[in-house]
């Protein structure tokens, strides 16, 4: 797919490319069956850019992100395609190079910080450990750096929190502590797997604002996986929408969110509750996501799609250029455009 004439939105051809993923596929196999979790996914990320991968459960968004760090169980997973991070081929890396890459060039933050933080070490120790291992600092220097990091993520009274254990912190502070651990080695790329989903609305907004600020200050790239379009609007430069393991629409955040073209993106925006008229039903996407164990040969969304034609189920649609810099994998973009004009999306 990388060979298609779609240009990368928002950027000129430059050497500022931090990450390039082309034709990524991930297959999980057991003795009984194999699951094609990710299929032909390509995207790229410039230095200091935020890409949101949007999708619902089972769309392959988390798998895509984990494969960038090669965090999937090696024995049962087959990763195909190319991942180039900062000029290095990730899929060709040996274990030692991988370990060096994780935590120094790339860090990850998760939805549930309790599972990512070690309950028996204090927050300060956990941040310091990363600093010592990857930057070769002494314990004293590392602890000083840990304090700086807690200040950086705006943890109140950081000296005291340095000695606190994860269970002693509230949900929002824990999330900040995990971000501090992830930032301990000033990564070039931060992978964020729904880090604000479990938080309350008033805390979520705080964490999102913090992440955006840190990202701008440190100039790091972020790949942010979420199912929440509002979160994407808040933080993303570029947006990639995934469905059943494929990237169905890709482009600049404002283009995709305000002017969606792929029927799935349109459906997802329409079915998101946002001040709709209470007297009518929400325009829900009918049906359920497909079974990844036996995907239809054509467009996986066709069975649920109001625009579907017969040829949609026959062959996988190629990416078609949107009026702006993005693309959508749909053969009926002209028709979807007409509908989108009649019913503008409510922000």
């Amino acid at each position: 797919m990388s060979s298609t004439a779609i240009r990368e939105p928002g950027t000129s051809l430059s050497t500022d490319e931090l990450l390039n993923v082309s034709d990524l596929s991930v297959e999980f196999s057991t003795r009984r069956e194999s699951v094609q979790a990710v299929n032909g996914v390509s995207f790229s990320l410039q230095k200091g850019e935020v890409l949101c991968i949007i999708g619902e459960s089972g769309s392959g968004k988390s798998v895509t992100m984990r494969s960038l760090m090669r965090l999937l169980p090696e024995s049962r997973t087959h990763i195909g395609g190319n991942i180039t991070l900062d000029g290095q081929d990730v899929l060709a890396m040996r274990n030692r190079q991988l370990t060096a890459m994780r935590g120094s060039k790339v860090s990850m933050i998760f939805q549930e910080p309790m599972t990512a933080l070690d309950p028996v070490y204090s927050i300060g120790d956990q941040i310091a450990e990363g600093v010592m291992r990857h930057l070769g600092k002494t314990r004293k220097e590392a602890t000083a750096r840990a304090l700086e990091l807690l200040e950086l993520v705006r943890v109140p009274s950081p000296e005291r929190r340095l000695r606190a254990y994860p269970h002693e912190l509230s949900g929002g502070l824990r999330q900040r502590a995990m971000i501090a651990v992830a930032l301990s080695c000033a990564p070039k790329l931060l992978l964020a797997d729904e880090p604000t989903t479990a938080l309350d609305a008033t805390v979520q907004i705080q964490v999102l604002i913090l992440l955006k600020k840190l990202q701008e200050e440190m100039g790091m790239g972020i790949i942010f996986v979420t199912h929440d379009l509002g979160v994407a609007a808040q933080i993303a430069d570029k947006v990639a929408v995934m469905y059943a393991g494929r990237l169905v629409e890709y482009g600049l955040a404002r283009d995709i969110l305000l002017n969606p073209r792929h029927p799935y993106t349109i459906g997802m925006l329409n079915s998101t509750v946002r001040g709709q008229d209470r007297s009518v039903d929400i325009e829900a996407i009918p049906g359920n996501p497909p079974d990844l164990r036996n995907l239809p040969p054509g467009c996986a969304f066709a069975p649920r799609c109001g625009f579907a034609l017969e040829q949609c189920s026959a062959a996988q649609p190629e990416p078609a250029a949107r009026p702006d810099a993005g693309y959508a994998r749909c053969i009926r973009l002209d028709e979807t455009a007409k509908v989108a004009e009649r019913h503008p999306i409510k922000a």
Binding site: V280, D281, E283, A284, P286, G287, N288, P303, R304, G306
Partner: peptide, 18 residues
């Protein structure tokens, strides 16, 4: 294209599951 809303559409959709 006709507009079908709510549970009717949803109901049909579930029945589509093989």
């Amino acid at each position: 294209m006709t507009t079908e809303i709510g549970p009717v559409a949803a109901r049909r959709a579930d029945a589509v599951t093989p």
